[in-house]
Design a protein around this nucleic acid. Structure first.
Lengths: 229, 229
DNA sequence: CGGACTTGTGAATCGGCATTCTCTTTGCTC
DNA sequence: GAGCAAAGAGAATGCCGATTCACAAGTCCG
């Protein structure tokens, strides 16, 4: 098992990527706290000092991880755009992808709030902000397209829509994490989505036509099994 | 200034509270990362080892801080209840208080996502979840009251309303933090609130009549001089 | 005043972790 | 196959932070 075979030699460009992913995975599973050079190295199959062949410092590793998050987020947007041409549906697809992303590697919210991002150099904070804004801008852009074609109320600020969209995801993420996955994210998301899409739809267009699934097909309750401690 | 006067002797019950507050303040300003026994001690005017007269370990200090957060949240609810009897208005007041709370000591979101909460004993995670749930339950309760008196749509799950409410605050908090306070929280909050209250209002009651007061007649609870991003 | 208890202090201790240095291995190129 | 540069290994260094311990100073009560 945990032998000490010498790692196969791999070129830096590849290693950097592996390391960034490993860092992200670590943060996702055990928090930024667990992000030690040693841990990252182990995960990649290297020895701690080897990391320094590819990054100047631990900080740089973190930066790479953050950049990776940004890529993932934008990748989701691209996928949602590819999935359908209808703005509202795009948002719905995006919501779903965003949620699965959080389920898989819940690193994003943790990273966003991590001390390393806050406390770190202003540069890091700024790049995190850029990544988030880029994502929000994409969402806003989709909303704007909806407005242009009349499927979204024209009196809404696209930016506000983007923030509300984010607000649909975040609390769910929090509860999901805190409850060890017992909180039913998808049900919450669908309910929230129904309300949001209803809100986005122009008033005169009738209550949520194609946009909102009917109440009947929406599953059960928000379930957080009461663990009486 | 930083002399080494011996600290005046104070009884444990008081010290424990001081220490919990200090810990929270530290987390708020510089993250859980900065929560060292030494830092807490300095803030209280003690020497590191003195902390151990009042807490068994650093972990216990953190627990105390978390408990304090719960108290603060519930205190906000109580204040909102006291401020007005109208459910919708209560939510609005609560929103304002919640936001100022985040501005003052942004510790809450950071704590919630902190590694210490996630990685720490399951017990800590559980108590954080309890605190959050208690808060959400209060919000849901207010929504339920609104439904009883007809000012809130009856077809909404109070729990869903509570989560949406939380979703109004969280993204704002994130951006506010990341942008060093440059993000205009109050504008976002007011826009989001307008939509939410519109959504909560019964459809037949006309668009935002009594339920959603116009921005003009709402006392300016949320106020921030900031510029835009 | 004199103990007994409580709170505060300062000097160790101890472990974890980032970073550095030197040496070895590997792979490419001529 | 020699030479060289990139990549990996492992030991050493040094710092920072939690925790412990023996001692001092206040406080309470008789």
């Amino acid at each position: 098992m945990g032998f000490s075979m010498r790692a196969v030699r791999v070129e830096t460009t590849v290693r950097r990527d592996q390391i960034a992913r490993a860092a992200l995975a670590l943060i996702a599973s055990r928090g930024t706290h667990a992000l030690s050079v040693a841990a990252v190295a182990r995960r990649v199959g290297l020895v701690p000092s080897a990391i320094y062949r590819h990054f100047r410092s631990k900080d740089e590793v973190l930066d790479a991880a953050i950049a990776h998050v940004g890529d993932l987020l934008l990748g989701n947007v691209a996928a949602a755009r590819a999935a359908t041409g209808v703005p509202i549906e795009r948002l719905h697809v995006l919501l779903g992808r965003h949620l699965s992303m959080i389920r898989e590697h819940g690193a994003i919210p943790r990273l966003i709030f991590s001390d390393d991002v806050y406390g770190g150099h202003a540069a890091r904070k700024a790049s995190m902000l850029r990544a988030l804004r880029a994502y929000l801008d994409q969402v806003a852009e989709i909303a704007r397209e909806g407005q242009e074609q009349g499927s979204v109320r024209a009196d809404l600020e696209p930016d506000t829509v983007a923030l509300l969209f984010m607000g649909l995801v975040q609390p769910a993420a929090v509860l999901w994490h805190l409850s060890d996955g017992r909180f039913d994210v998808s049900t919450h998301a669908e309910r929230g989505w129904r309300l949001l899409s209803e809100t986005l739809a122009p008033r005169d267009a009738g209550p949520a036509s194609a946009a909102a699934p009917t109440a009947a097909e929406i599953p059960r309750l928000i379930r957080i099994p009461e663990d009486r401690t």
